[in-house]
Amino acid sequence: MTSHTNGHPQDFEVRVLRQDAPGAKTYWERHRVPYERDMNVISVLQRIAAQAKSADGRQVAPVAWDCNCLEEVCGACTMLVNGRTRQACTALVDKLLEDNPSEIELRPMSKFPVVRDLMVDRRRMFRALQKVKAWVPVDGYFDKGPGGRMSQEEQGQAYPLSECMSCGCCLEACPQYTKVELTRRDGETDEDFRRRETATFDSAFVGAHAISQVMLFNSNPTGKMNAGERIDALTAEGGIQVCGNAQNCVAVCPKSIPLTTSIARAGRAATVHSIKKWFDR
């Protein structure tokens, strides 16, 4: 920090871990950003883009990052801010400087392949939602009256699970969720590569977010009719058995979704389901 006015620094330093492309070397870059009222990490990155100069005065390309809603409902801007996985939009500069006045450190998530700088490829998360059939399989979209009645208590349980914005914080914090990064082989077609990628995604751990979605749909009045299919998906390779019960997921979830409760319920459902299947043989 240079000098202070009204208890605030005039400017502050931001250190960004950059990577130009997948597979490229990573490097740290320092930026100096003038302090303004009500700043968050998003506005810091906006100022860095507008400056186009690093702290040592070199012309540099803007840092690439992902964001959209800026109010923590879209899940886009997950990154590591001072080492902690979180949404960049709710990372307020005043608070960050209080905790560490010397700098703000930004890194991309480590469990997903880096596309560039702070942008990562989280398609594996959405694939997991497909794998576990995270939807209500309705007959169609013609008018068939309302859905099933639901008590306030049931709604009160479903709603928090349904707030999951697929941000990936729970996966970043999970010891069992490890990075899957594939590169295309020589001569492999785009389609073959995608197929191999999907198969690899499906054999790796689905993660807390997908387990919780299974519990959401398995408690829906219509969704529960297909509960078995989802539990089958959860007990296949890469399923709930991989969970090591570290409980990091629930600690970092920005929406305070009771992920470990979902995991415990899913575990019980999986046991009951497999016993039932065994007797039905």
Binding site: W135, V136, K144, G147, R149, S151, Q152, Y159
Partner: peptide, 22 residues
């Protein structure tokens, strides 16, 4: 009214009255 019913069927957790209606 039909659109709200459809969204209800698709699983939107609409807030409920004590009797379980939307």
């Amino acid at each position: 009214p039909r659109i709200i019913d459809l969204m209800d069927r698709l699983g939107v957790p609409f807030n409920r009255t004590p009797e379980g209606f939307r």
